[in-house]
Nucleic acid binder design. Structure first.
Lengths: 207, 207
DNA sequence: CTCAGTTGTTAGTGACCAATTACTACTTAG
DNA sequence: CTAAGTAGTAATTGGTCACTAACAACTGAG
């Protein structure tokens, strides 16, 4: 059942519960927490909050399902931490990409960074599932914080006006759904047109 | 339990199963189907595919949960039909709004129509949940069809170039997440800036 | 009136799932 | 060596959920 062998040892020594003993390889709770968080990001990105079981996440992280609840208070808290972590990485990537540039140059650099994020899919799908689960109050609050942080990051790094920032953000949201629908696998006219072109050869304003 | 009384009658006549007899008010299966579809659109818009139970939908539609499965083969099929129906209504609203106009006028008319759709929330959230559930193959196929139909509708009605259509669509996606996060309840600078202004007083290109 | 078709229900099934309990195995400080 | 603390698991629990089975009430044609 466990997808990550080598963690539980093979010899079937039976103890009180008749269970196989754990391997001698132990990690700190902090290491496990990070492993669970990584696993959660991948799994939640695919199935969302309600469509992903804690068992699935625990299995990917290589721990038992109950231990997950020692590391995180509940499933929703893990979900929220996952989307926040993903968001922080997006912000960090934007800052690294923009560097010391500003204005349209910074915007283009961030657009390039975003297309690199798309390659992973995890980040975009995760934020999409965050928005979709905004029916929940705590998730909604977290999504608002994430949105705000990204907004101010774009604004601060580029120094451009709200209309431009909004348009940039909107394009990002379009990228989200294009990624979700896997439109790069669709070889039809509308699908190709919907995908934004390479940001490095785009025109700043209008045609 | 049933939120819609009046459908089951009160007198406790016990039959074979000890069940209360049904009311004399009967509807055609087609009427029930439409009621279920309406209920499904509302509930799925809030909770999404995995976050909504068939019991919840059936209760809103005023029928028993098992009867739902006589009207629809399974939950996913109902979900797909819900998002497709919502999409058709969006397309229809665009066509009605554009009327005989074209170009930027048509685009503005559709933008106004879209802001009216936002008032309901159901349509936007439903399409958002559709995208979020694109991990499923059938849902993904349905979302692609919906996206394509809307794309071609915008293109056909406006007659404008792909870049403009894409930007229009992207703004729509931004509206989706703004709606999901209920940003109109947030009285902060970033939240106000993120919301697109009234489309009737917008500038076609650039500043 | 009768019977076939339609509308609708209650009851149940098997699977799954988040979270808890109760325990075991390992590690380290004194 | 020992005791306290930490890492980890198996078993269970109470609940929900999608879907099925079995059955009954209503309706309309002949």
């Amino acid at each position: 059942m466990h997808p990550k062998p080598g963690l539980t040892c093979e010899w079937p020594i039976t103890n009180f519960f008749g269970m196989a003993p754990t391997s001698t390889i132990r990690q700190t709770a902090e290491q496990r927490r990070e492993a669970v968080l990584r696993a959660a990001m991948i799994e939640f990105a695919q199935g969302g909050l309600d469509g992903t079981s804690t068992q699935t996440i625990a299995a990917r992280a290589g721990i038992s399902q109950p231990y997950l609840f020692r590391l995180f208070p509940n499933k929703k808290a893990l979900f929220i931490e996952a989307i926040q972590t993903a968001n922080q990485q997006i912000v960090a990537k934007f800052e690294a990409a923009a560097g010391t540039t500003s204005g349209q140059d910074a915007l283009t650099a961030m657009a390039v960074a975003y297309t690199e994020l798309i390659a992973d899919r995890t980040f975009l799908l995760l934020s999409l599932h965050g928005f979709a689960s905004c029916g929940d109050e705590e998730v909604r609050a977290a999504c608002r914080r994430c949105f705000r942080d990204v907004w101010y990051t774009i604004e601060r790094l580029s120094g451009l006006d709200p209309d431009t920032v909004r348009q940039f953000y909107a394009t990002g949201m379009l990228c989200n759904v294009i990624t979700a629908m896997q439109l790069d696998d669709v070889d039809e006219r509308w699908a190709k047109l919907a995908r934004p072109g390479d940001p490095r050869e785009s025109k700043p304003e209008g045609k």
